[in-house]
């Protein structure tokens, strides 16, 4: 336990002292500033009398001519943070010759990987919690409308889901840092996976869904709906989709996890969206959250087992 705490502290100190994270912090705070700026410009226009959760709107307003919104930024940026925190966790220790020295100290071997993972997790948590509270504080100062208890809960959920998403990417990067001996290789592998999921997953999902359920202009609502269901089902392989759907349900109570397509159909069929209570929102995203958690756990478990089983060979 003592070993875990020491390694955790050392890793945390490393993170705080490295320029890498100075840059990440600055970038995140820049995004916070942009969020506040855009909220200041647009929140009055987005909010009308029927808006129930005004405070949440601070976080979801997007610029009318600037393609920026806080959730979009987070969904792109969190993977980068996670990868940056994890990609050289184990292999840098190995190549620098610190690993065997470290392991010859009276600590359990898993202390090393756990301590590193925990330090990364705390880093992500500090980043996300600080940015959300900063935006909330500045936003409160600006709009003067205090959040309701449910809004606070929803923001907490947003923070937790975001940390979880960061944890997934970090555990993937840690896994690669165990598998690949070179930090550059593991960084590239992580980024490659991220780019693949980010750029091509939608394309592939669309391709498969179109093949299975061909739709055209004459398609019935049922066909479009089944296409949409399939499309999103395939897309959910990507943790990014799980994250976006989760934060959508948490931050946009009206939407739930409905896709834009289904929203359109809903609007045409005259369904008026009403905000869901938090419990309902959570129920909707429960599978996504569990999926994200499971992916994180799987990646970390593989990394953990590989690291524990690994024999320190004579070089």
């Amino acid at each position: 336990m003592a070993g875990l705490i020491e390694i955790f502290r050392k890793e945390l100190a490393d993170n705080f002292n490295s320029k890498r994270f100075l840059i990440l912090f600055l970038l995140v705070y820049l995004a916070g500033a942009a969020t506040i700026y855009i909220a200041a410009q647009n929140i009055r226009a987005t909010v009308d009398d029927s808006t129930r959760y005004i405070f949440l709107n601070l976080f979801i307003v997007s610029g009318s001519n600037i393609p920026f919104s806080f959730p979009l930024f987070m969904s792109i940026f969190i993977p980068i943070i996670g990868i940056a925190l994890g990609f050289d966790a184990v292999n840098s220790e190995r190549t620098s010759g610190n690993l065997s020295r470290l392991l010859s100290q009276p600590i359990y071997r898993d202390n090393v990987i756990n301590g590193k993972f925990l330090a990364g997790l705390v880093m992500i948590a500090i980043l996300i919690v600080s940015i959300v509270t900063l935006v909330a504080g500045l936003g409160l100062r600006m709009i003067g409308v205090p959040p309701e208890a449910e809004e606070i809960l929803r923001l907490c959920m947003f923070v937790i889901v975001s940390i979880l998403y960061g944890a997934f990417w970090m555990s993937l990067a840690v896994l690669f840092s165990v598998v690949f001996n070179k930090a550059a290789t593991s960084a590239l592998a992580s980024i490659a996976i991220w780019l693949f999921l980010f750029l091509f997953m939608g394309l592939i999902a669309n391709l498969i869904a179109v093949t299975v359920v061909p739709i055209n202009a004459d398609s019935t609502v049922e066909q479009i709906a089944s296409f949409d269901t399939l499309y999103r089902m395939i897309n959910r392989i990507s943790p990014g989709t799980l994250y976006v759907e989760s934060i959508q349900a948490v931050l946009l109570p009206i939407l739930g996890t409905s896709s834009p397509t289904m929203m359109m159909i809903g609007i045409y069929s005259g369904l008026k969206p009403t905000p869901l209570p938090l419990s309902q929102s959570l129920l909707i995203v429960w599978p996504q959250l569990v999926g994200l958690l499971a992916l994180t756990a799987i990646c970390f478990a593989i990394a953990y087992i590989k690291f524990m089983r690994e024999e320190i060979r004579a070089t």
């Binding site: 900063l134 909330a136 504080g137 500045l138 409160l140 709009i143």
Partner: peptide, 14 residues
Amino acid sequence: LTPTIWGWVGVGIV
């Protein structure tokens, strides 16, 4: 105006 209390709370949070 932002109600004074929330203004301060906001600044306080920051």
